[in-house]
Deep mutational scan, measured.
Amino acid sequence: KFNKELSVAGREIVTLPNLNDPQKKAFIFSLWDDPSQSANLLAEAKKLNDAQAPK
Rank of each mutant, 00 (worst) to 15 (best):
residue 25 K to A: 14
residue 13 I to M: 03
residue 46 K to P: 01
residue 24 K to D: 02
residue 16 L to P: 01
residue 16 L to Y: 05
residue 42 L to N: 02
residue 5 E to H: 08
residue 24 K to Q: 00
residue 31 L to D: 06
residue 21 D to G: 13
residue 30 S to G: 08
residue 52 Q to N: 05
residue 44 E to K: 08
residue 42 L to E: 04
residue 19 L to H: 01
residue 10 G to S: 14
residue 53 A to R: 09
residue 38 S to R: 05
residue 32 W to D: 06
residue 36 S to N: 07
residue 15 T to G: 12
residue 27 F to Q: 00
residue 12 E to F: 15
residue 33 D to M: 10
residue 7 S to C: 15
residue 25 K to V: 11
residue 26 A to E: 14
residue 4 K to N: 14
residue 45 A to T: 01
residue 46 K to Q: 08
residue 49 N to F: 02
residue 49 N to C: 04
residue 24 K to Y: 01
residue 42 L to D: 01
residue 28 I to T: 01
residue 20 N to Y: 10
residue 41 L to M: 04
residue 35 P to E: 04
residue 48 L to C: 07
residue 35 P to G: 03
residue 3 N to F: 14
residue 15 T to W: 10
residue 8 V to G: 08
residue 36 S to C: 07
residue 45 A to H: 00
residue 22 P to C: 15
residue 14 V to F: 09
residue 19 L to Y: 00
residue 54 P to Y: 04
residue 34 D to V: 02
residue 42 L to K: 01
residue 41 L to T: 06
residue 38 S to Y: 13
residue 54 P to W: 03
residue 4 K to D: 13
residue 3 N to S: 11
residue 34 D to H: 04
residue 51 A to F: 09
residue 37 Q to F: 03
residue 38 S to W: 15
residue 29 F to I: 14
residue 43 A to V: 08
residue 23 Q to R: 00
residue 35 P to K: 01
residue 22 P to G: 14
residue 47 K to N: 06
residue 9 A to H: 06
residue 53 A to V: 07
residue 16 L to D: 01
residue 18 N to G: 01
residue 32 W to T: 06
residue 50 D to F: 06
residue 49 N to K: 01
residue 52 Q to R: 04
residue 3 N to Y: 14
residue 51 A to N: 06
residue 45 A to F: 00
residue 21 D to P: 09
residue 10 G to W: 15
residue 17 P to E: 07
residue 47 K to T: 07
residue 11 R to A: 12
residue 26 A to S: 08
residue 12 E to W: 11
residue 16 L to G: 02
residue 31 L to T: 04
residue 51 A to G: 04
residue 24 K to F: 02
residue 11 R to N: 08
residue 37 Q to P: 02
residue 32 W to V: 06
residue 4 K to M: 10
residue 32 W to A: 06
residue 15 T to M: 14
residue 43 A to C: 09
residue 46 K to W: 03
residue 16 L to K: 01
residue 51 A to C: 12
residue 55 K to Q: 11
residue 48 L to P: 01
residue 43 A to S: 08
residue 42 L to S: 01
residue 12 E to K: 10
residue 2 F to V: 13
